[in-house]
Design a binder for these strands. Structure first.
Lengths: 206, 206, 206, 206
DNA sequence: CATGAATGAGCTTTCATTCAT
DNA sequence: CATGAATGAAAGCTCATTCAT
């Protein structure tokens, strides 16, 4: 009991609770009970409740960005159709979301209630993902595959809205029509919508 | 002694607080202080803190759906281009959102933390809006203006993701590139994306 | 139970506890138990534990200074020997101390441990008493009954040391040789020492 | 690994903290941080927090009494004026206080809050000093230089009050009129007050 | 002797809710 | 309907002390 790394044990215990119940309804006593350590142990490893959430979020961001950008860089220099490139990015993201549901839930469903620091850490993670979209769009614009009427940032904002909202429905809305699809299908649909809008959902694209 | 209806006074006081601080961080004592009534008065009008939020949300839903469907029904039977019909719906929605920011914030940014009943009321409001999208899409499919590869509900889900996320960025993200646009421009952009995707953002559409 | 003024009830309960156990060892739970009210009631009337102590100290200062200065003013304009005037002041002070032992204990035996605000409130009360001494000495100096070699403030500081330390021994040191004297005798001794030092303790003065 | 004796290191670290913050506000973690050792090391050298304070107080008492009585004994059998003898004792005491401010602060400003054992150790140290005063007074009474109306203990009690209160003002009250004097001047003033009271502060004595 | 993570009892404080007036 | 003092369960957090290494 003394040999395990309790800091990690606590984070592992906290994430599912935070994802399901949110910040306020997750009590420190819940976390330590789940982790099997004493209440004081929590405060040895983390300054306060806010701290463990920030720690989890930062660690999660590191992993997520690593996944996104390592997948992404492989495509650099490729001459493939942009849809392929974008689909790879989306599929990476959807796969990551699927296998890290709790983290994703924390990211997408933490509301106004939690502390400013937490909200701002979440915002910065989402912003980083949006930046990956913006990068992709910028390259497509350079290659004249997408019109440059609007800045890549504006387009990325709309794309991010679409993606995050769709992930939310896909993973967390019970009974949603998206729930039955797998990550690859989700990516394909998103990219179709991304490039062609609702009209793009023809049999030839789906 | 108060000629105004205190129930309404309390709701008017509560909405901005709830929107800004969220459910848990809005204390009943904050609400009554803002409303200028005593703590006990709150509990004469509302069973508990959850009740006032539900009341606000239900009242808000009534107004919102009324606005959406009265705007929408005017278009029923029209032979206009679907993009026009859809743009009217979007513009109605964006305008409503713009003049009801607090309610919109409550709707879009209430997270996992609040009570189940509240989350489910919010979900049902959002679902109702999504249904309006679905109706529009269904008519377009009937008129063969949109492919029927996917059900109107699936397409509406993606459209709703796009719309809600975009409203969020537009109204609540400081410094976002969307923040400078007005409701009409937002509607135009959304519809463009809706029907043509990123490729639709040509100068001829913007 | 609802009709009594609980703020006073709490203060009355707190003073003896604070006097006997000091700030940290007096728990809020002790106070409310003694007062017979719920824990929350304490925090309705006082912002925190520090606040009740400050309230008690300020109220005590008001009473004490009132007693001292109303006794003192009666002597204004008197041609009596300064020793008489001084003895009246001392006797007033010792009598007050005797009938307000708890308050006096709070004043004299609150140490370095308590909060800065409390220490500074205590210091200011003691300073106010010292000022009464300084006033008396100044008048004696004007009448050339006391040498003006040192400022009245310096002399008052020494006199205050003597008086506060003596009260402490008199009231709170078990087994101290002073414990058997009454307020009038204490005042006489102090004044004797004040004006004549140890050599003044001759049979003719005592 | 540490060549210095950690027990002493801990005591040296603890004294200033205890003097400044008092018993409760000085945390064991503060002490070990200041001392540069681990928390556990503290508990190898001292049974608990109370123990280190008692140890410091006892060691301090040993030094102090040694200083007082070695100075004092030199005067034994002297035929000098009692004021000289007393002044030597006072000067010894004030000098010691001046070069051991932290210890003195612990002695004079530890209030009701700390443990019974600590308070009683402090009381016994102060009592021991008072005994030195009593001895001096007794000899003066034997030589008929001071009246025997009151017991040497009663007179010593008042003298001790004067001395301890004056030291407190001299060393620890910011802005006090005594603060500018040095130990020798303090001793002279105290002895003047001791033997002649306020009237003794003539130019011939100052 | 030394370490530092672990412990848990106990503290202050918060706040939704109740209720006598 | 309105008041606002009273309630008390429950929360976050502290810190002296223990103990395996």
């Amino acid at each position: 009991m003394h040999t395990t790394e309790n800091q990690q044990v606590l984070m592992d215990a906290a994430l599912p609770l935070l994802a399901r119940k949110g910040f306020h309804k997750t009590k420190v006593s819940d976390i330590v009970k789940q982790a099997g350590v004493a209440q004081g142990t929590f405060y040895w490893h983390f300054k306060n409740k806010e701290a463990i959430v920030l720690h989890i979020l930062k660690e999660g961001e590191r992993y997520l960005l690593n996944v996104i950008y390592s997948g992404y860089r492989k495509q650099v220099g490729s001459l493939n159709d942009m849809t392929t490139s974008s689909k790879d990015l989306m599929q990476t993201l959807f796969s990551y979301a699927e296998s890290n549901k709790d983290y994703m839930q924390l990211l997408l469903k933490t509301g106004q209630d939690s502390d400013e620091k937490i909200r701002s850490q979440i915002a910065s993670t989402l912003q980083a993902i949006e930046q990956a979209f913006a990068n992709n769009i910028a390259r497509a614009q350079e290659l004249h595959m997408l019109p440059a009427t609007y800045s890549n940032h504006t387009l990325a904002a709309m794309l991010a809205s679409l993606v995050f909202g769709t992930i939310d429905r896909w993973l967390f809305r019970e009974g949603d029509s998206l729930a039955t699809l797998n990550a690859e299908e989700m990516a394909r649909q998103i990219v179709s919508f991304e490039f062609f809008g609702l009209r793009g959902f023809t049999s030839s694209h789906s």
